[in-house]
């Protein structure tokens, strides 16, 4: 018996996604919004990792609320995700991800969503993941800052690495919910597409 939440899913999608485990590395602007989209689609299990606590300045783009300020992001996000789909399985890791531990933390994930802030961390995560699990996809975000220019945001893929964003804009241009959430939703969309085995890929 599948949940009525997923009554609008396309045929075969609910059963496939319920079996899926997706990792989310970072639960900020990208990770929190991507996780919401993944749970709404029916992903059965998420591994969420972030050591930070919610700050007021996060609320401009991250899926948190005033009452979450001061809470661990993974715990606050878990509450929001379970408020959408109570049966979703969530592995919460309130730890600092490093090149030494990231592959182990996400060992059960079929796909990893890279949702870090810093470009240096994006790179070591890509390298760690590809070295540990060469057959598994990683969905990276790069270029989501500033305003507008929606048409410059795209998915570019090379092998198992998929990049979402404009590939240019840097956080020095500011971070705004609309543009960050587009890229986060795009990352979730790519992950769902890969899990469903899109014949176009």
């Amino acid at each position: 018996m599948t949940s009525p939440i997923f009554a609008r899913n396309v045929p075969g999608m609910t059963e496939r996604l319920a079996r899926a485990a997706v990792g989310v590395a970072g639960c900020g602007g990208l990770g929190s919004n991507a996780a919401v989209a993944l749970v709404r689609a029916g992903i059965g299990r998420l591994i969420l990792a972030d050591a930070d606590r919610v700050e007021a300045s996060n609320l401009n783009r991250q899926h948190f609320f005033q009452r979450d300020i001061g809470r661990l992001k993974v715990e606050a996000l878990a509450d929001h995700l379970q408020a959408i789909h109570p049966a979703v399985a969530l592995d919460l890791r309130a730890i600092e991800l490093t090149p030494a531990n990231a592959a182990e933390v996400f060992g059960d994930a079929e796909i990893l969503i890279e949702a870090f802030d810093r470009a240096e961390a994006k790179r070591w995560l890509i390298e760690s993941w590809c070295r540990a699990y060469p057959g598994r996809p990683i969905v990276v975000a790069s270029g989501l800052a500033g305003l507008g220019r929606t048409a410059s945001i795209a998915v570019r893929s090379a092998g198992r690495i998929h990049f979402c964003g404009d590939g240019e804009s840097d956080m020095s241009a500011g971070l705004c919910a609309a543009r960050v959430a587009i890229v986060a939703a795009m990352q979730a969309n790519v992950a769902i597409e890969l899990l469903m085995g899109d014949p176009m890929r």
Binding site: A119, E168, D170
Partner: peptide, 8 residues
Amino acid sequence: VFHLAHGG
């Protein structure tokens, strides 16, 4: 060649 930009 993909540019990695800060922001998340």
